[in-house]
């Protein structure tokens, strides 16, 4: 096995182009589990830990650009206000030790349907910045990034550099069902983001389909029916839950049944929209 240690982004891209089968490693919280259990024997590990820029973030021109390797702990501490949905989801990842190492870039690289960063990225409309030496930069909207169970739009010679998100202009919430308050892979999860300026609501479902996905019909329904200046109509809320559940395509597995997941998605959808709506109304009243 090779152990590659680029110190700049250009070196990293060159290493990946020369050896596309090299496995990138950042926090290692997915990669090392697979190696320790002999699930994966990569020909080479490409350690991105010395590419300092991947652990930085910037806020410029109204967009937050967050390096692929910024760990969850720092997203929680430093970006909780700008990216509240993602910060909430980050708080639910693993344990403090896992959050100190694990990153959104790694979550995207793994592209698990249960990854907790995906629903808030979808709901808030994130764009993933990827690049390769020979193909240059591609900006992939989160909604087009996930292609199948643990499959993404990333090409073999590409690396994830950052994700881009507008700082929240309205309330955002994330909620996750699991057996414990720590260390759980989501049975299912849901994120909602209000975009009051555009009178739009974004959604993201986790662990409820082969890929993380938006509930597009539910979003369109709210786009048509939601009165942004009034209380939330219970019938409308109920319909929103139904449409979110209908967007799910869950499976039965050790963590839960498909029927339970569909039910829980409806509950989480109603609950998170209610929280967000209360904030929205509260803010306007204040």
């Amino acid at each position: 096995m090779d152990f590659l240690r680029p110190t700049t982004w250009e070196e990293a891209l060159a290493a990946k182009a020369d050896q596309p089968e090299a496995v990138p490693i950042q926090g290692g919280t997915d990669v090392m589990v697979e190696i320790n259990f002999d699930v994966r024997r990569p020909v080479a590990l490409l350690d991105l830990g010395n590419v300092a820029e991947l652990r930085t973030w910037t806020l410029a021109d109204g967009v937050c650009r967050v390096g692929a390797a910024v760990p969850y702990t720092r997203i929680i501490d430093e970006l909780g206000e700008a990216l509240p949905g993602l910060a909430q989801a980050s708080r639910t990842v693993g344990s403090p030790q896992i959050r100190n190492r694990g990153s959104v870039g790694g979550n995207l690289g793994a592209a698990s349907p249960a990854g907790d960063s995906h629903p808030p990225l979808l709901a808030a409309g994130a764009v993933v910045e990827v690049a390769s030496r020979d193909g240059g930069v591609r900006m992939i909207p989160a909604g087009e990034f996930y292609l199948g169970v643990k499959r993404s739009a990333l090409r073999p010679d590409e690396l994830i550099r950052a994700f881009h998100l507008r700082p929240a202009t309205g309330p955002q919430y994330f909620s996750k069902v699991g057996t414990r308050n720590a260390m759980v892979i989501a049975v299912c999860s849901f994120a909602v983001a209000l975009h009051p300026g555009e009178r739009r609501v974004g959604t993201g479902l986790g662990s409820a389909a082969p890929t993380p996905r938006r509930a597009v019909e539910a979003e369109e329904f709210l786009g048509r029916e939601l009165d942004w200046d009034s209380r939330l109509d219970p019938a409308l809320l109920g319909r929103f839950g139904e449409l979110c559940a209908a967007a799910a395509a869950p499976i039965d597995d050790v963590r839960g049944t498909a029927a339970y997941r569909r039910h829980a998605i409806a509950v989480l959808a109603r609950r998170t929209l209610t929280w967000a709506w209360n904030d929205h109304r509260g803010r306007r009243a204040a």
């Binding site: 090392m32 350690d47 830990g49 403090p96 896992i98």
Partner: peptide, 15 residues
Amino acid sequence: GTPVCACLVAAGQAE
């Protein structure tokens, strides 16, 4: 200075 699970750090990452 940050607590981590040593089982999930590749040895080469500690260089």
